[in-house]
Design a protein around this nucleic acid. Structure first.
Lengths: 123, 123
DNA sequence: CAGGATCCTATGGGATACTG
DNA sequence: CAGTATCCCATAGGATCCTG
């Protein structure tokens, strides 16, 4: 994924290249899924729920999701600062499809992992 | 995505990290979608349908999809060689969910692209 | 607390040349 | 035709340090 690129030059109308490719990275789906677990979530809480994400990547991923209108970021003028992240309506309308994917992945995981090792041996 | 990694060490049971992250790359979804357009497809035809993919990445993507049991590869003992790619039952069971994603992306693309540029300006 | 700024490395991915 | 093999570069992403 090329985050700096706003739109694919050759295929500006392709929904896969322009929209889906943008959340096809290591963390976006996981962040959306995690945010979906509660209405509001602070930065630290989010990071606690995804322990293997780095601070930088959590920030970068949230910013990109925010750019595309999937995530709302609310900053409170307090000290120490409080920032609450939540899903937008757009994300909420997407999430059922994400959840379907996750359910599918859960149901097929064992078989895929078995095949993966098997097929890896052969090559 | 780390293609060499067979399974996530910290979260071996996470379907997102282990299954979905694997097809969360630049080309997998597009290749699955394209293969779904006809029952069988040869390497060259596939590449003609995805003109902006490099030969290397088409090969790599197909191999990974094959490892995970999404793609079947049939080689004919002919000269010049003929290789036909097709979706497996597993891929066929996944594809409705992929298509739902694509439809969603198509319906929301304009609004997202608008937001993306807008939000990019602000930052 | 919620990050920004840097530095660094691994690797995703393209371009080109070659082959059974 | 359907790839392999190389070389190379951009960038995704981690680690660490710093700050309002």
């Amino acid at each position: 994924m090329v985050r700096t690129k706003i739109q694919n030059e050759l295929y500006p109308d392709c929904p896969i290249r322009n929209i889906l490719a943008r959340i096809s990275d290591k963390w976006s789906i996981l962040v959306l899924f995690t945010l979906n677990q509660s209405a509001l979530m602070r930065f630290n809480t989010l990071q606690k729920n995804i322990p293997d994400i780095s601070q930088k990547m959590l920030t970068v991923t949230l910013r990109t999701l925010e750019e595309d209108g999937f995530v709302k970021r609310k900053v409170y003028a307090e000290v120490p600062p409080r920032v609450e992240y939540s899903l937008t309506e757009r994300a909420i309308s997407l999430l059922p499809h994400i959840n379907d994917l996750i359910t599918w992945a859960k149901n097929n995981m064992d078989a895929i992992l078995t095949d993966r090792i098997q097929n890896k041996q052969k090559s």
